[in-house]
């Protein structure tokens, strides 16, 4: 559905040009106008930022050019790579554990009766609890290093994975599974059917869990760490180095955007595998 609601509400019939060529001209004109507005929309915040920075002329409020230059500098001299790598490594490890564990738990809860009865209400009930508050306990148990952060990421990301997997598995058409039983397929083959049928919603879940992972990584590194992008943020901030601080924020935005695009690409791939074109 690409049309806008009010446009549809307000458009009265008969305004539409009746000749095909007239229609096409109007259509392409509209498309260019949209593209122009969208480009302006992306550029406008940068222009406003730049103008404000020029007016303020304050060391604490650097403009976009200075920030981008700083990002290029720290990327070129390699300091930021080490920290980015640390953050990515731990974050993705935690996310992977959450996805694998969450999928198994979700499918289990949806297909095994006692797991459904015992676990589902517990998981749903504890979902809105801010699990991040448990981080000090994890630090006491596992130390300030990588382990406490990986567990924290796993804990926060697993919830949406479990709950969407549960819902998606229950939504699988029963006839597929009956057919599988009918031809004598084992539990592994049936798990395969569930995976294929739920694969597109899995990708959607991954898209939900990814920003959670980033938030948790940044927060935990801000709280306690001597490496990672969150640490770099805190150090730059306490050094009153707004250029470096904002450069790291910019990098995080880029990382988040790229990861999100990658998941969308994965979604296209999975969608073709599952025989559906979606996402």
């Amino acid at each position: 559905m690409s049309e806008k609601v009010i446009d549809r509400v307000t458009s009265t019939t008969g305004q539409e040009p009746s000749t095909p060529s007239g229609y096409r001209a109007a259509e392409s004109q509209r498309r260019w106008a949209r593209r122009a507005r969208r480009t302006v929309a992306v550029l406008l915040p940068f222009v406003v930022w730049w103008t404000l920075a020029e007016i303020a002329n304050n060391r604490l409020f650097p403009g976009p050019i200075e920030v981008i230059a700083t990002l290029v500098d720290v990327t070129a001299d390699g300091t930021i790579w080490f920290h980015a790598q640390q953050t990515a490594q731990r974050g993705l490890t935690g996310l992977a554990i959450a996805v694998v564990g969450g999928v198994f738990l979700g499918v289990g809860m949806a297909s095994v009766r006692w797991m459904d009865s015992v676990l589902e209400p517990l998981v749903s009930a504890t979902y809105p609890i801010p699990k991040l508050a448990l981080f000090p306990l994890l630090v006491l148990a596992l130390g300030f290093g990588a382990e406490s952060k990986i567990v924290m990421v796993t804990l926060e990301c697993a919830y949406p994975v479990i709950l969407t997997t549960y819902a998606a598995t229950r939504g699988v058409d029963k006839h597929y599974l009956w057919l599988a039983r009918n031809v004598g397929a084992g539990p592994l083959a049936r798990f395969g059917i569930i995976m294929r049928a739920t694969s597109t919603s899995m990708v959607a879940t991954l898209r939900m869990a990814l920003p959670i992972m980033l938030v948790i990584m940044v927060v935990t590194e801000l709280i306690s760490e001597s490496r990672g992008l969150g640490y770099l943020l805190r150090r730059a901030s306490s050094d009153f180095d707004p250029e470096l601080t904002m450069a790291v924020v910019l990098l995080l935005a880029i990382v988040g955007f790229v990861l999100d695009r990658l998941v969308v690409l994965l979604g296209d791939f999975v969608g073709r595998w599952a025989g559906k074109v979606q996402l």
Partner: peptide, 30 residues
């Protein structure tokens, strides 16, 4: 509801959406 508003708001939101907003805290603190 409005295509104009959409064209101005949606691109900005899509770009800033994946940023973990807590990362802004150290900046705001400065």
């Amino acid at each position: 509801v409005s295509r104009w508003a959409e064209d101005f708001i949606d691109p900005v939101v899509s770009l800033t959406y994946p940023l973990p907003k807590i990362a802004l805290f150290p900046v705001v603190v400065i």
